[in-house]
Design a protein around this nucleic acid. Structure first.
Lengths: 213, 213
DNA sequence: TGCAAATGTGAGGATTACTCATGTTTGTAA
DNA sequence: TTACAAACATGAGTAATCCTCACATTTGCA
């Protein structure tokens, strides 16, 4: 059950929907399409990826691509959705057991490191989340994902500071999380050494905020 | 004297350079092009802006557009450059006189408010800085601008904490500034009320960091 | 076995950024 | 004033690309 119940519905005007593959054959072909897209994005970036090239690489015709994806962005979106699903599970696990301030510090610090390494190592992820600002649908997906992740953080904060205003905690968690994603994007677009410093600084800043009061 | 004649330095691989307008007539026409671009971006966003439409709106031919701008992105870049020049002056002025922690708190808080209002009110600025991630040249411009702005902050911090490690102060200032831009982008893409809360939370978080130690 | 639904195909339609051959205007030097 | 080179203006045409659609093939099932 990949498709989790997420109603990640067609957010904005994400072109007309397409048939979902119902036969074994077509399901495999869709997988090949996504794999090829992933490879091409890693090699050249999603902007430079051509639909013709993608079709060839996947061993299907142009028409087949559009049988299952309404447009080019939808393919990227599908890849993005997989990443978010994966990382949400990871984040949920990391934060679930946190019971005190020290535990939060430990877990959060590790989470940041994991994310940073992931960003450095995964060209596809980097490419996708870079284009995030320009594409309405992707931006919505990222916001939804970020809210979900922030929710795990909020839960921890509520446990640590039960008397605090819930809305304030939520705002803090969401902001800290978004700042983290921004810090990652920044860190990977400068020299490695400076990037490391920036990530470390973000970590301090975020923890100061999370553990404050 | 707008510095229109700028050789719009080719940042990355920003297509072949074009002639700079040297006659009065062409300088006026370039102004009309930029004004039309600004209007169209405000109305529909830079992605939806068509070169043909832009030419018509500016009262020039397609060819004339390309006489002075190597490509579509360069037009947006030119607009962006003006915004950065303007805002840098404003920021420099706001931070120049800061002498103590309280002054910094005051000045920084006002700066954030000004930026937030600007983002809310200026669709062109919003559009341009949204596409910032996707466009190499724009991203570089934004990073350079952000560094320059952060430098003003760094100067203040050095005055307040002369014993601190200069590199650390620089990193802090740059990070805080970039987080601010990210917070703005986030704030304007959610409900107004939540946006306000997020900006307020960012302000607290940034000040806590800037005034720490 | 027959047939409807699902799937596969790729030449061509539609859009759009950008070029270039050609014509016009401007500043200036004789 | 005139001549002329350089700057400027033009817009039909080119190239690149996403996506459609009419038609062919395959699959699951009664």
């Amino acid at each position: 059950m990949e498709d989790t119940a997420t109603p990640v519905s067609p957010q904005e005007q994400i072109a007309s929907p397409r048939r979902a593959p119902s036969q074994q054959r077509s399901r495999e072909r869709v997988e090949r399409m996504l794999a090829a897209a992933s490879a091409l994005i890693a090699e050249q970036g999603s902007d430079a990826m051509r639909m013709g090239e993608l079709a060839e690489r996947a061993g299907v015709s142009i028409g087949s691509l559009y049988q299952f994806f309404p447009d080019k962005r939808a393919i990227i979106w599908a890849l993005a959705e997989r990443y978010t699903a994966e990382s949400q599970a990871c984040i949920s696990a990391a934060l679930a057991g946190v019971g005190d301030a020290e535990g939060l510090g430990q877990a959060f610090s590790e989470l940041v490191d994991i994310y940073y390494r992931l960003f450095l190592a995964e060209p596809v992820m980097r490419d996708i989340w870079s284009g995030t600002q320009a594409d309405k649908a992707l931006r919505q997906l990222e916001l939804a994902d970020s809210r979900a992740n922030a929710e795990f953080l909020t839960a921890v904060l509520r446990r640590l500071r039960p008397m605090a205003d819930p809305t304030a905690l939520e705002t803090t968690a969401f902001l800290v999380w978004q700042m983290g994603e921004a810090a990652m994007r920044l860190a990977i677009s400068v020299e490695r050494q400076e990037g490391d410093r920036l990530v470390a600084a973000y970590k301090r800043m975020a923890l100061r905020e999370l553990l404050a009061e």
